[in-house]
Design a protein around this nucleic acid. Structure first.
Lengths: 180, 180
DNA sequence: CCAGACTATGTCACTTCTGACATAGTCTGA
DNA sequence: TCAGACTATGTCAGAAGTGACATAGTCTGG
């Protein structure tokens, strides 16, 4: 019933109470890179979750025309999250624009394709460096029962991903250099 | 103007003429794992592309109530595709349900989380074996001007991705085993 | 000979996500 | 003191994607 975005919000609220604005910030890279949404979607989803009784909020005086709402997980919300966590994820279709461009790259000028991948390589190397800096803040993997284990494990995934991606870009650049 | 799905269809048609049905099949794993869509979306997009003059078709007698339509790339379609290929890809938000579950995994029973990752590990190892079998059909990387270069390069990406993913799952299983 | 798979195109309601618009208080540094 | 960034919530039109429904000919194996 609850959408994946709903569980993403519950997962953030499991760490402590937050406003919608703070949830949106928490879901942005590089802090917690797992599921992103615009604030417009988050506010809408929070309303659904509140209706369903999975979250609750206190309205407090805030900036802007409306009160600010500090959301927290309810007992039902916590239960729903815990059940969902260990269910197998549904297969999401892979939609990767760079891979698609690669598939069609034989049509284009190799010099331009090479430049595209050189740029992408730089992006991934920078992101990798950023993640490595963040990893140093941990002193080894936290215990699997510690909330920080979630952060560390997703960071590990990101590190592996960026390494794989950078390596692939390097391979592409090498292939395209050989043919020039 | 044209959506990414539109370019995905153009990229398939660049290899030769196809019916909508065949395009849908080509975009399914494991043959060409880059961008997927249901036939309902593909038929709708083909109509838009035809209206825009990027593809053309011949109607031929086919099964079912309608004629079958064999689509091909027009000169305009080819030009549009070639221009698009070397433009930097727009950043797509990362939405990975397994990573999200990982982020919330500290809440759940470690034994169940471990099982989840053991299952995922098996999935990735199987997919890796499948890709490796497919790689053997190539005798080294084709020339970057060869259409098969597109297939080979996307396969390389898939191989790297599955290796990274499997390694991460193995690490997760090890973490969760240590704590039992 | 017939069931079931495969080929083939299409519509439609619905969910998800994006990007723009709207509003307004607080805090910080030049 | 004033611009600009940050905090904060919301609406809405539209694009993108899903899953079910509808229809019907051909081909293959039991």
């Amino acid at each position: 019933m609850t959408s994946t975005l709903g569980y993403a919000i519950l997962a953030v609220l499991a760490r402590g109470e937050r406003t919608g604005y703070e949830i949106a910030a928490a879901m942005r890279r590089p802090v917690s890179y797992f599921w992103t949404a615009r604030h417009s979607q988050i506010h809408a989803e929070l309303q659904k979750l509140a209706t369903g009784g999975l979250v609750a909020f206190d309205a407090r005086h805030g900036p802007g025309p409306q009160d600010k709402k500090v959301y927290r997980l309810t007992a039902e919300g916590g239960d729903a999250l815990r059940v969902w966590v260990t269910e197998p994820p549904r297969e999401r279709p892979e939609r990767d624009e760079l891979v698609l461009k690669t598939y069609a790259s034989w049509l284009a000028d190799p010099g331009l394709v090479r430049r595209l991948f050189a740029e992408q390589l730089r992006v991934h190397e920078e992101r990798l460096a950023e993640y490595e800096r963040e990893e140093e803040l941990f002193e080894g993997p936290p215990d699997p029962g510690d909330p920080r284990f979630g952060n560390y494990a997703t960071l590990r995934c990101g590190l592996g991903y960026e390494r794989h991606r950078a390596e692939w870009c390097r391979w592409m650049v090498a292939q395209l250099s050989a043919s020039l």
